[in-house]
């Protein structure tokens, strides 16, 4: 599972949707793998507007990556190849193969196995 995926995921429990604590989900015990991919600067430039920057900061920190920019890059920063390359590595080349995603609101844990996160819920939470 590419790290960018977590930018679009939230807790599957209905009651958590309205809570700000349900996003981002928090990675635990994550086993990471770097899978190289062609660097496409234009591609990253169009992805940046989709990213919740605060959430990405939290996720990068939890996964032990060096600190990312304080603010979402804009203007000339989006022409800075170094910035784009770091984002390319973090968002597209970083895979989470095993681990958990946990909800900051209800504490529910979603298991990641073979790169597939399982968001099916036990019957008492449906």
């Amino acid at each position: 599972m590419k790290l960018i995926t977590a930018n679009f995921l939230t807790c599957a429990v209905k009651g958590c949707k309205a809570s700000p604590a349900s996003f981002p989900l928090h990675f635990r015990d994550a086993e990471l793998e770097l899978q190289e991919l062609d660097f496409q600067p234009d591609f990253i430039r169009n992805i940046v507007p989709r990213i919740d920057w605060h959430a990405l900061q939290i996720m990068a920190n939890e996964l032990g990556f060096p600190k990312i920019l304080d603010k979402k890059p804009e203007g000339d920063e989006l022409k800075d190849e170094q910035i784009l390359k770091e984002l390319h590595r973090l968002l597209l080349e970083t895979h989470i193969n095993e681990g958990k995603l946990t909800c900051g609101n209800c504490g529910h844990e979603y298991l990641i196995k073979e790169g597939i996160a399982n968001f099916l819920l036990p019957s008492h939470l449906v």
Partner: peptide, 22 residues
């Protein structure tokens, strides 16, 4: 000459795991 990147597959019931409005 760009290439599309497949994000991931996720196990879930319909759209339950997706951020609203995304």
């Amino acid at each position: 000459c760009q290439k599309t990147v497949y994000l991931s597959s996720v196990m879930a019931d319909l759209g339950s795991s997706l951020r609203p409005g995304s």
